[in-house]
């Protein structure tokens, strides 16, 4: 039941974002539009960086950090080739190798 409420809540905040402009009309004010442009960058970075760098609530900047190694490889591949799936694949391979070698 709680799970169902969670799913309905998630849908209830997602659908209006998609449908609002199309159903109510109007426009997004230019300032808000500009702010929205930075939402994916800020949110995804805020989720990803702690996931990569934090280990037992401490910042772990080390070659032994498999997540860091994999994330760096993904970032470099996507930066150079603009190919998302190759980047993810390369990062996953490096991450897996790191875990096997350093386990």
């Amino acid at each position: 039941m709680n799970t169902l409420l969670l799913l309905l809540g998630m849908a209830a905040v997602t659908y209006p974002v998609r449908a609002g402009l199309w159903l109510r009309g109007g426009q997004i004010p230019p300032r808000l539009k500009q702010a929205l442009d930075y939402v994916p960058t800020a949110v995804l970075t805020a989720i990803t960086v702690p996931a990569v760098l934090l280990h037992n609530d401490q910042v772990w900047l080390s070659w032994h950090n498999a997540q860091l190694a994999g994330a760096l490889v993904t970032g470099i591949i996507v930066w150079r080739t603009r190919h998302l799936l190759w980047g993810i694949g390369g990062g996953l391979v490096v991450y897996a190798l790191w875990r096997v070698w350093l386990a």
Partner: peptide, 17 residues
């Protein structure tokens, strides 16, 4: 370590941004 797939996905989305 499937969570890393999510991390890699987000890195891949952010870099072109």
């Amino acid at each position: 370590g499937l969570e890393f797939a999510m991390v890699a996905t987000f890195v891949g989305i952010v870099v072109p941004l």
